[in-house]
Design a protein around this nucleic acid. Structure first.
Length: 726
DNA sequence: ACAGGCGCAGTTTTT
DNA sequence: CTGCGCCTGT
């Protein structure tokens, strides 16, 4: 154990070994936070004799939970399995499954996701006669979510905000929404937290059971907690007061979804005897990168204050590229990456970060054209795909036949000719008789027509199958007997969707293999909470594009951040309040500190947004980085250029090539020699090879070349500097 | 019940 | 410029 502690610096060691009482660890980016947490747990169990089952470690994502559990297990072995290392939500599900009946709910609840939430909100809007334009479902959802984050019930919300006309309406919607969920025995993600808090306050014996169980509590990413989550932790920690929270106020970037930075800022007020430890030594980046980050973030008020340092040395300057427009910007990035790849970097060492996902489009176009390998981390997650969500809705209805929300989703998917009129009839009956939709169908089976009767029979049949078969078999049966499989055949993406459902079945089989004791219910909880399959393929050698939000917690040797323009980053959406601008600045801090060795920041003089081209000023965040840390490459048009070229060209829709052919960043044609299939060529890095194919791409030629030493590569003539071999 | 056309709005996202 | 939601016509 003492050997282990030698691997920590003195602050880290102090954080790992201060076991009793409240502790706040302010862990700067790249300061070895996860290492401290895992060593701390190992130390508690190994040295202090703390029982693993007395430990609760809370994270936000499943990925983080899994990583922490794995690392602790590596340090101390199997016994680690007795700890709870869970996300807020999965811990709450486990608590609620045991005791939610104490507060008048059914233990067999289903968990719905935001897509279902939205359809319930829409139902509510319709029933109350509200206009979707005046009350966009998205904003109603987030209002309800904020209410729950603040632990406000519909009536408390109405009391608090009822003076505001709009909020009064929202309160009505919230109330109806809640009623619908309750009838369907569904909980949304926010309910999981809020109801656990309610359970703890209404049933003190349950609370004291968990207080006694979890004598040692650790919370990661504490700056991301909302009020409800904080309250939950405070209730649990109150008795034994062994609470260690780890976070970085400068990396709080989730206010928009309810994170309350005051939880971390006020921790010392909550616990006046709290010990505070700062981890400021950074093991990730060069000093120049850290100085840039420090200089940006110091413009924020209301922070705890921290200054990252490293013993790695200065490193390279930060390159700032001022592009003419977004195409030029993307070309710069692609070209730079290509030349780095020639100089020994792997593409997977490089990332492009941006403020909003929409930025990926131009990047993709340019990278595609230049044949620079990339992948985009965003897009649809596996469980968000329509076909998967439909299958899950069937499963949820089977698990909990009261689940009206799931029933509505699938009663006419695939089409069974059950439309609005029939559904309204069913809903009216259910309302009258105070039962679920499916029960109402059962009660009136003879009057609702053949297709409804057939649907009812289908569900009954599936309920039997669920009782007698394994989960993969059940999903298979749902897929076939519901007619979904047949229905997919007419879909344009038939094969892909079919494969996805195959993947769902595989996943279920895997889950059951790894969790032999698991029930259908456990599997469904797992589906609801582990909503993204980890398809991050580390092996694939491609540059990765993602938002700065998505990059939190990751690091790359080479980082490009694009869109450093006022209005883009910081986004004009956040220009109304200084609070929001500060959150943007924290996002900038997160982005910069992802880089290990080299950072490129780019802005563009003009860019097209929403179909309109306009001019932009460089981001204030660029100005906040001191001159001596930056190396500026200015490719923005001079005044003369700008007046002569841009307006005319744009207004006449000139082809891109005539506008930008002379852009200095465009690769210079140093070698106009071209080759065709069968020719022997020599490449500076890959050596001798034979051209397999040559296809012109724009004004360039795309070669597929079989090299003697490195195998087949795809290269572009303009970049590859090929010479004739013999 | 569904396809096709129009009009409008437009960050970030885990569970 | 997109994508989504509503409306209309079959």
């Amino acid at each position: 154990m003492n050997e282990l502690l030698k691997e920590l610096n003195s602050q880290q060691r102090e954080a790992a070994t201060s076991v009793g009482g409240p502790l706040l660890v302010l862990a700067g980016a790249g300061s070895g936070k996860t290492r401290v947490l895992t060593y701390r747990i190992a130390y508690m169990i190994g040295e202090k004799g703390v029982a693993p089952w007395n430990i609760l470690a809370i994270t936000f994502t499943n990925k983080a939970a899994k990583e922490m559990a794995d690392r602790v297990e590596k340090l101390i072995g199997e016994t680690a399995k007795d700890m709870w290392v869970r996300t807020f939500h999965s811990a709450c599900v486990r608590i609620l499954r045991r005791d939610i009946d104490r507060i008048g709910y059914d233990r067999n609840f289903n968990i719905i996701d935001s897509d279902d939430q939205k359809s319930v909100v829409k139902e509510c809007l319709k029933e109350l006669g509200f206009d979707e334009k005046e009350f966009p479902p998205r904003s109603v959802m987030s209002e309800i979510s904020f209410a729950k984050d603040k632990l406000l019930t519909p009536s408390q919300y109405a009391l608090e905000y009822g003076d505001d006309y709009r909020k009064k309406q929202i309160a009505n919607l919230y109330s109806l929404y809640q009623k619908k969920l309750k009838v369907a025995n569904d909980l949304d993600f926010d309910d999981l937290i809020m109801l656990t808090v309610k359970l703890f306050s209404d049933a003190p014996d349950v609370l004291s059971f968990y207080q006694n169980k979890f004598r040692y509590i650790l919370v990661d990413e504490y700056q991301d907690t909302n009020k409800a989550q904080n309250e939950l932790i405070m209730m649990l920690a109150k008795e034994h007061r062994n609470l260690c929270v780890v976070g970085d106020d400068d990396q709080s970037i989730y206010k928009f979804r309810g994170a309350d930075i005051s939880n971390i800022l006020d921790f010392e007020k909550e616990f006046t005897d709290a010990r505070v430890i700062r981890l400021e030594q950074n093991y990730r980046s060069t000093q120049n990168i850290l100085d840039a980050a420090n200089n940006v973030i110091k413009n924020n008020f209301g922070r705890k204050g921290k200054n990252l340092w490293t013993d790695k040395g200065e490193g390279e300057k930060i390159t700032v590229y001022k592009a003419q427009n977004e195409h030029d910007e993307a070309s710069y990035i692609a070209d730079k990456m290509y030349s780095l790849s020639i100089n020994g970097y792997r593409y997977s060492d490089m990332a492009v970060l941006y403020r909003a996902n929409s930025s990926s489009r131009t990047l993709e176009e340019v990278f595609m054209r230049k044949a620079v390998p990339y992948r985009v981390l965003a897009g649809l997650r596996f469980y968000d795909r329509k076909e998967i969500r439909d299958m899950i809705a069937y499963l949820r209805l089977i698990k909990n036949p009261d689940d009206n929300i799931s029933l509505r989703r699938i009663i006419n998917t695939p089409s069974r000719k059950i439309g609005k009129v029939t559904l309204d009839k069913i809903a009216a009956a259910a309302d009258r008789e105070g039962c679920s939709l499916l029960k109402a169908i059962g009660n009136h089976i003879d009057t609702l027509g053949a297709s409804v009767a057939e649907f009812y029979k289908l569900i009954e049949e599936l309920l039997v199958i669920a009782r007698e078969n394994t989960i993969p078999e059940l999903i298979e049966a749902v897929y076939e007997k519901s007619g979904y499989k047949e229905f997919l055949k007419t879909d344009e993406k038939a094969q892909e969707r079919d494969e996805n459902i195959g993947e769902l079945i595989n996943g279920a089989a895997n889950y059951m293999e790894n969790n032999e004791e698991a029930t259908f219910e456990d599997y469904m909880d797992n589906l609801a909470l582990i909503s993204d399959i980890d398809n991050y393929d580390e092996e694939l050698d491609a540059a990765v594009f993602m938002t700065m939000h998505a990059a939190k917690g990751l690091e790359f040797p080479i980082v490009f951040i694009c869109g450093f323009d006022e209005g883009i980053f910081p986004s004009f959406m956040s220009s109304y309040s200084s609070e929001e601008t500060e959150e943007e600045r924290r996002l900038c801090y997160v982005g910069i500190t992802r880089a290990r060795e080299k950072l490129h920041l780019t802005c563009a003089h003009s860019r097209m947004l929403y179909g309109k081209t306009s001019n932009y000023k460089p981001s204030r965040f660029l100005e906040e980085i001191p001159e001596n840390l930056k190396e500026i490459i200015d490719n923005s048009p001079t005044i003369g250029d700008y007046e002569i070229k841009i307006p005319k060209a744009v207004s006449h829709n000139a082809p891109e090539s005539s506008l930008f052919a002379s852009a200095p960043s465009a690769p210079r044609r140093t070698n106009t020699q071209t080759f065709s299939a069968g020719d022997c060529v020599i490449h500076k890095k890959f050596g001798r090879g034979i051209i397999i194919s040559a296809n012109s791409v724009g004004n360039d030629i795309h070669y597929e070349i079989a090299f003697e030493s490195v195998g087949t590569k795809n290269l572009l003539g303009l970049y590859a500097k090929l010479e004739k071999g013999d």
